[in-house]
Design a protein around this nucleic acid. Sequence first.
DNA 1: TGCCGTTATGCAAAGATAAACATATCGGTA
DNA 2: TACCGATATGTTTATCTTTGCATAACGGCA
Lengths: 125, 125
Amino acid sequence: MGKRGKSNRFNVFLNYKLWLSSMSGDGIISEEVYTLLNGIRDKGSLKAAAEAADISYRKAWGDLKQAESMLGYDLTEKTRGGKKGGHSELTPAAKKLLEAYAALQEKLDDAVEEAYLELKKKMEN
Amino acid sequence: MGKRGKSNRFNVFLNYKLWLSSMSGDGIISEEVYTLLNGIRDKGSLKAAAEAADISYRKAWGDLKQAESMLGYDLTEKTRGGKKGGHSELTPAAKKLLEAYAALQEKLDDAVEEAYLELKKKMEN
DNA sequence: TGCCGTTATGCAAAGATAAACATATCGGTA
DNA sequence: TACCGATATGTTTATCTTTGCATAACGGCA
């Protein structure tokens, strides 16, 4: 047998979750909302985005509404009726938010990864 | 009136939450468990720690048990009966975990703060 | 040995969260 | 104008989480 590492391997994963909240803490924009916005951008409707995210339309609609009310401006432009029954698309502000969020997530992913390796090292000593 | 910043102030806060999980994702060590461990260290009993954290003893006990089962080793040494009815104290492993976690949290707090400022700047342009 | 306060644990009740269901509205198009 | 499919929203059900209650075991101490 060759040598090997300590036997108490710290065999767990570090996860994290981000969200934006209002000062009062009532409304939140969770990662779910970002998923929805991405879906809306890709599919052109909240219904399709909700299905893709595997959450009920009712909840998706409520979450989006709450996010918009919290920010104080719209993230989507919605229309009812029309050839395809209606559709939703992102406002410029939403597009900016998605971009900014992606950058933020990448940066934090790196920070978490780094912190995790340190945690692990400490726990294996 | 002098000049002032853009009016669409991005007036929300960035929050984050950390937790450790097993590969399968079933068991987790949430921030709550860290709070409990801190409480146990300070007060010497799970009951007191649960009260301080404002969660039911039932849940605190269950969470702790789950965390220990996930890690595969004990985080607390418990005794029943005795002069004060019983008590709990941290194992060396738990102390190490708390230390490592505090360092991790500090590091990530900084990273999040930094990322938030960037996000904000982007959203205000 | 009976009491106290804590750990330990099952089970029922209560609360929170999300899904499901039910309609209504809208505006192109057949 | 009737139909389609998506938005919009209230109401009811189901699910998931947490609390609360009950009860047992334990071991110093009066």
